[in-house]
């Protein structure tokens, strides 16, 4: 075992970690915004809007993220849309996050009792008033725990961007292994860093779920 290799290269791994968090955080924000749009469109009564939205959600949620990355990075240039690896990975992850966030938004809204919408309508509120003042304030509370879960997933899935060469924690680990050959120690260290970030997040998510059920 060569744990000294780990200590010597730790700063490099942490630099990768910073990149991992930046990508995951940025994707979470963009994905949530996209998710709200898709989720609300998905609930539309107009089938010309509802069905296509559903299609987009099914594709992003029903195929492996790595395939979406390959398609965007390697496949899209055929249509003249050549993206560098970093934007390609971020675009793929944002679509993936958007599809999943949309499902969270849809689920949260539909989990509210129908009586809430009926009560709001009976008071004379229109669609956007009902959404803004009655439905969304309640639904957003229900979205928080699964959105936190999505964030944990995104941090873990950022590792996939390494496969198309994006610099983040997994890529930093691979590069260090190429120089030092200490794959066991370094992968274990990377796993440990991911764990140190994701485990508290999981605990927080559980906490949020509990307080939601208690309320």
């Amino acid at each position: 075992m060569h744990w000294d290799i780990v200590t010597k290269n730790l700063w490099y791994l942490l630099w990768g970690t910073k990149s991992t968090l930046q990508i995951a955080g940025g994707v979470l924000i963009m994905g949530t915004i996209l998710g709200f749009f898709l989720g609300l469109l998905r609930l539309s009564n107009n089938p010309l809007i509802g069905y296509p939205t559903r299609g987009v959600m099914e594709v992003t949620r029903g195929t492996p993220l790595i395939m979406q990355m390959f398609f965007i990075f390697f496949g899209l240039p055929a249509l003249g849309l050549e993206l560098p690896k970093y934007p390609a990975a971020v675009l793929a992850m944002t679509l993936f996050a958007g599809g999943n966030a949309a499902e969270i938004v849809r689920g949260a809204i539909q989990s509210l009792p129908k009586g809430q919408t009926e009560a709001a309508k009976s008071l004379g509120m229109n669609y956007s008033q009902t959404m803004t003042f009655v439905i969304l304030p309640q639904a957003v509370r229900r979205m928080i725990p699964p959105m936190m879960g999505l964030f944990t997933t995104l941090i873990k899935d950022t590792s996939l961007a390494a496969i198309i060469g994006v610099f983040e924690l997994t890529r930093a680990t691979q590069e260090t292994i190429e120089r030092t050959f200490a794959s066991f120690e370094l992968y274990l260290t990377a796993a440990f860093i991911y764990f140190v970030i994701c485990y508290p997040l999981s605990l927080l998510t559980q906490q949020a779920e509990k307080s939601l059920h208690a309320a």
Binding site: T170, F184, C198
Partner: peptide, 11 residues
């Protein structure tokens, strides 16, 4: 559950 599958595969 709190580490990426990819890292587990590599490890």
């Amino acid at each position: 559950r709190n580490t990426p599958l990819l890292i587990q595969i590599f490890l």
